[in-house]
Simulated scan of single mutants.
Amino acid sequence: MTPSTEPVPAPSHAQLLLLDKHQVDALLSPGDVQQAVREAFVLHSEREGRVFPVVREPLRTGGVFGIKSGDVQAQGLLGFKAAGFWPANRQRGGEPHQATILLIDPSTGRPLCVIDGNTVTTVRTGAAGGLGLQQLARPGSARLCLFGTGVQARIQLDFALRLIPSLNEVLYVSASGQRQADFEARFAARCSIAPATDRNAAVARSDIVITATPGGGALFDLDAVQPGTHLNCVGADTRGKRELPDGLLARARLVVDDRVQASQIGEMQWAPDTACVELGDLLSGKATFERDASDITVFDMTGLALQDLTVARLLHARAAETGTGTRIAWPW
Rank of each mutant, 00 (worst) to 15 (best):
V170T: 07
F147K: 05
Q135I: 07
G66W: 00
L315P: 07
Q152H: 14
I296R: 04
D25F: 05
A194I: 03
G63A: 15
L43W: 12
T100E: 08
K241Q: 11
Q15T: 15
L248Y: 00
D221P: 01
G150A: 09
G240H: 07
G323I: 04
A212G: 03
P9Q: 07
L17S: 04
L309F: 03
F289V: 03
S45K: 02
D221H: 13
Q135K: 15
V203G: 07
L43M: 09
L314I: 06
L16D: 08
F289M: 13
V260F: 06
I328G: 05
A160P: 10
A287H: 09
N168F: 02
E169G: 03
V173C: 12
V225E: 13
C276N: 10
V255D: 03
L19T: 09
A319K: 06
F65E: 00
I101W: 00
Q34D: 11
G76E: 08
E39T: 13
D32H: 15
P111G: 10
N168S: 15
G140C: 11
L16C: 08
R92A: 15
G132A: 15
R251S: 08
I67V: 15
T229E: 10
R154Y: 11
P30N: 14
L222S: 04
R313Y: 05
L18G: 10
R313T: 11
S141Q: 10
R90V: 15
G148K: 01
V37T: 02
Q307N: 13
I101R: 08
K286M: 12
A196G: 02
R124V: 06
V170M: 04
E48W: 06
D292P: 00
A271F: 00
T324S: 11
Q73C: 11
S29V: 12
V114S: 09
L315T: 10
L144R: 06
N200H: 12
D116R: 01
Q73W: 12
R179W: 07
R90D: 12
G49K: 03
S141W: 04
L231F: 02
W330C: 15
A218W: 00
